[in-house]
Simulated assay, not measured.
Amino acid sequence: MPNSMNPLQLIADRWQPSARFVQRAALACVVMAVVIVVTGGAVRLTQSGLGCPTWPTCTDESLTPTRAMGINGVIEFSNRMLTYVLCGVVGLAIIAARAREPRRRSLTRLGWAQFWIVMGNAVVGGITVLTGLNPYIVSSHFLLSTALLTVAVVMWQRTREGDAEPRDRVARPVRQLSWLLVVASAVLIVVGTVVTGAGKHAGDASKDVHRIPLNWRELTQLHVDFVFIVVGLTVALWFTLRAVKAAAAPSRRVTELFVVLMLQGVIGYVQYFTGQPELVVGAHMLGSCIVWIAVLRVFLSLRDRGELASVPAPAGEHDALQTASVPSR
């Protein structure tokens, strides 16, 4: 498509967003990625997973929930509608990144990656309903949401840094330790989804909803084991950064991660010993998103890509500034 016919180019020709606007649009994607996880959890915890028993419509005869479907239909349908809000926020981030000069293709690619993850996850959500809340599909649905959150956080970080080749701020062994932290945290999240798939919150009051046929308590113990691994790696990374006298930013990010892990641990223990009340489980899901964001921020803080480039002044304006800077004789 010629540039003159490209709608994104037409917008770029007429609108020049500030760097701060692009950053806020990317941050809005992060916030919406968390919101979609929490509201999806609300659907499960209120037993509204089959509030709309089919997809893409709510019933075979109606696009929207009917009065007979009650509050469960409203909750499920509202969560579906949030996908359109998410698409709108991601679309705004793509447009803002495309219109910003100098153009940064890496940002628009990250924006489009989010869009296609949202589209793919919408289909997985539909399959979840059509399969009667199959726990393996439900787990995939959550993990795709985590992938969306990952890309959103990376885009947000990229809007605040330059495009130079990544340069490690720490020695290679320290960087490898951060990789271990990321991998262990990812496994922790995956195990957490399996725990949920085997637990009592099936997402619907029907006894026909299939659960993962594994011992829930043993899975929970495995989940706790990985929590201790992640906490241990976090503490080890903090002491390592202090020992090598790393920059203040990475140490601050690790401290933030440790605080988040402690709060999430408290929520997890309360959830376990109180019989998994819905509100506490929902808080734990929110906490898992915040933990993952904190882990990614630690990892991304250990490399440097230079300063964010400023928008070059137009040629005429640049000449005028040069002329004004020449003292009169």
Rank of each mutant, 00 (worst) to 15 (best):
A164H: 15
A164R: 14
A164Q: 14
D168F: 02
D168H: 06
V170W: 00
L177H: 12
L177V: 07
L177G: 04
W179G: 08
L180R: 13
V183M: 11
A184I: 12
A184C: 12
A184D: 03
S185C: 05
I189Q: 13
V190S: 00
T193E: 08
V194D: 03
G197S: 04
G197L: 01
K200W: 10
A202T: 06
G203Y: 00
G203Q: 01
D204P: 02
A205S: 08
K207Q: 03
D208R: 03
H210A: 12
L214S: 10
L214C: 05
N215W: 08
W216K: 14
L219R: 01
L219N: 10
T220Y: 06
H223N: 04
V224W: 04
V227P: 02
V227H: 05
V230H: 06
G232D: 06
T234F: 10
T234Y: 08
T234W: 08
L237S: 00
L237Y: 07
L241D: 04
A247M: 07
A248F: 10
A249W: 11
S251Q: 14
S251L: 13
R252Y: 14
R252K: 14
R253M: 09
R253A: 09
V254Q: 03
T255H: 14
E256I: 15
L257Q: 12
F258S: 14
F258Y: 13
L261K: 09
M262F: 10
Q264K: 09
V270E: 07
Y272M: 15
F273M: 13
T274I: 09
G275C: 09
L279D: 13
L286N: 02
L286F: 05
S288M: 09
C289N: 08
I290F: 11
I290H: 05
V291D: 03
I293F: 06
A294Y: 13
L296M: 11
L296N: 09
V298P: 00
F299M: 08
L300T: 06
L300Q: 07
D304K: 02
R305K: 03
G306N: 02
E307F: 00
S310F: 13
S310H: 14
S310R: 15
